[in-house]
Amino acid sequence: MLKIGNQTFESRFLLGTGKFPDFKIQKQAVEVSKANILTFALRRMNVFQPDQPNFLEMLDVDKYTLLPNTAGASTAEEAIRTAHLAKASGLCDMVKVEIIGDSRTLLPDPIETYKACEVLLEEGFILLPYISDDLVLAKRLEALGVHAVMPGVSPIGSGQGILNPTQLQLIIETINIPVIVDAGIGSPADAALAMSLGADGVLLNTAVSGAKDPVKMANAMRLAIQAGRLGYEAGRIDKREYAVPSSPVEGLSVSE
């Protein structure tokens, strides 16, 4: 069970809802993923073409916890405004604080993120800030009172996987609130590795929505996240420099 704030979730797989080829595939992928938490963005509505379908309106929103992001924000002020708008929907009190500090890498701005969290926590939001794999920032945000940290493991949408597992592991070992790997996961192997290192959850989007078969990939990711978690709980063996035989060395039958 994943516990964020005072809510618990069966699934450790958080799924983004952007860039799916069509709503039918997206709906199937969401179902197959068995994710409890879905992320969304807030954007202007095209009121001049109101008939455009909207994915959220096709979902049974009572079945999911919505995690709106503040994507598009580059300052604390913009992120705070988006968080207020999201909360005014009456559908959520959780927010993924995402404040981009560099447009080419989409890496988060740590200072603006901290500032936004400071304000939004005062207002009672449940906060999951998207951060770089920065241990000290994670510690500072934990001390501030955020409800989870979401370190990226490589740039958003890059699918490069976990570029620095050591750094991720340091965060996992040090931080007592949930650590949810967000951004950079490309393959089920990446997701399994994140979980087997002890991450509390994985949030991904492009790795599923951009896959050749998003529904199959949603299933693969679900299984990988489960397998990684089980492996973490089971406790892996230590790595050794040399071989250790798996078969007994005594009692070998040798022909003279």
Binding site: G16, G18, T39, A41, L42, R44, M45
Partner: peptide, 10 residues
């Protein structure tokens, strides 16, 4: 007036 809604996002 700003009219916003939820759209797909990660």
């Amino acid at each position: 007036i700003e009219i916003v809604h939820f759209v797909g996002g990660g």
